[in-house]
């Protein structure tokens, strides 16, 4: 049975993939180490295990994917491991997140940047929403900004750490409008929502998945989305840009990288495999369940995207008064 699926997969590969010639050069011969920088249960870990399970279910790979956790340093330990221990290794790939770009910009302890690794594919864009409590007076983002202008520093946003996506959105909005409000860091998403629901803060940049049930129950109201286009689940809510704020969209990305020194044919193998993978029903369901958007990009595009993303982030960090390490 197994081998027949293998033949089938190879046939599909020939039929679907545009560049089958060099893709034929590499095929994994032993289980793939699939690394994430978060511990079991963290965002990257759940993402990696979701991919591994869907790959197995769809029978796309001849070998298993074994999820490995290398925690520490906000991704720095995992990145250093890829560079120092796994250079040229063709049987390991890792999940990257936006943190892999921003952490090395801010921290001198992080010895390596994304440029030291081999970009493979970008997979998803995670949208976010600007939410307020349902009994709050702000019906639109403009209302919130106006209120913030009226009493500078007294409105509060519950949020993650400095340099994260919600911080960047705030910086951009504050520079664009001249408004000013407090940014209160909480380590976990749960505590951020609790602070918003309890009325201890006024606003939060929240993931659609986290907010969904509270919106349905009438506890929260969404006043704008942080995404390129409107979210299917919230067709009436404008994006920040549609709401009249001319700031660039801040994407939250996830994708795959490989260690440095990996041959081009290996990268091509992964590009094609994931190109087929993202079309499978399992993956489509995963995206829909989590309200993620497809953000597939091949290696060369991802490299370009990464440079741009790092440069923009660095500028925003500097403008926000953060000391950058590189």
């Amino acid at each position: 049975m197994k081998s027949r699926y293998g033949v089938l997969a190879a046939a599909l590969l020939l039929a679907v993939a545009a560049a089958p010639l060099h893709a034929q050069g590499f095929k994994p011969s032993k289980p793939i180490e699939f690394m994430t920088h978060t511990g079991p249960g963290g965002g990257g870990d759940v993402f990696a295990r979701g991919i591994a399970a869907a790959m197995e279910k769809e029978g796309l790979m001849p070998v298993r994917m074994q999820v490995v956790n290398k925690t520490g340093g906000g991704g720095a330990t995992a990145m250093a491991y890829l560079v120092n221990e796994k250079k040229g290794d063709t049987h390991i790939i890792a999940v990257f997140t936006g943190l892999w770009f921003t952490n090395p910009i801010m921290r001198k302890e992080a010895k390596f940047t994304m440029k030291d690794l081999t970009p493979v594919v970008r997979l998803v864009l995670e949208p976010a929403m600007v939410a307020v409590k349902n009994d709050a007076p702000y019906k639109s983002l403009q209302d919130f900004i106006d209120a913030a202008k009226q009493s500078p520093g007294s409105l509060k946003q519950s949020a993650g750490s400095l340099g994260s996506r919600d911080w960047i959105v705030r910086q951009l909005l504050m520079t664009n409008t001249g408004a000013n409000w407090a940014y209160i860091s909480f380590p976990g998403g749960g505590e951020r929502i609790a602070a918003l629901l309890g009325g201890h803060v006024n606003m939060m940049v929240i993931e659609p998945q986290e907010a969904g049930e509270h919106i349905r129950a009438g506890n929260l109201r969404v006043i704008a989305t942080v995404s390129d286009k409107r979210l299917p689940a919230f067709p009436d809510v404008p994006t920040i840009q549609e709401a009249g704020f001319k700031i660039p969209n801040v994407p939250q990305v996830r994708g795959i990288v490989a260690p440095p020194g990996v041959p081009a044919e290996v990268v091509a193998y992964w590009e094609d495999l994931f190109a087929r993978f993202i079309k499978t029903p399992s993956w489509q369901k995963y995206l829909a369940d989590n309200m993620f958007q497809d953000g597939y990009m091949r290696s060369a595009e991802l490299a370009k995207f990464g440079d741009q993303f790092s440069d923009t982030t660095r500028e925003i960090l500097k403008a926000g008064g953060v000391k950058v390490a590189r």
Binding site: G39, P40, G41, G190, E210, E213, R216, A217, D289, N290
Partner: peptide
Amino acid sequence: LGIPGSGTTAILLAAFILWGLRPGPLM
């Protein structure tokens, strides 16, 4: 509330969502 207070409850929450159950005020 769909709010996890620890690493273990966070992964339980992720599991609930994967099954299409939505912990929250209406669960």
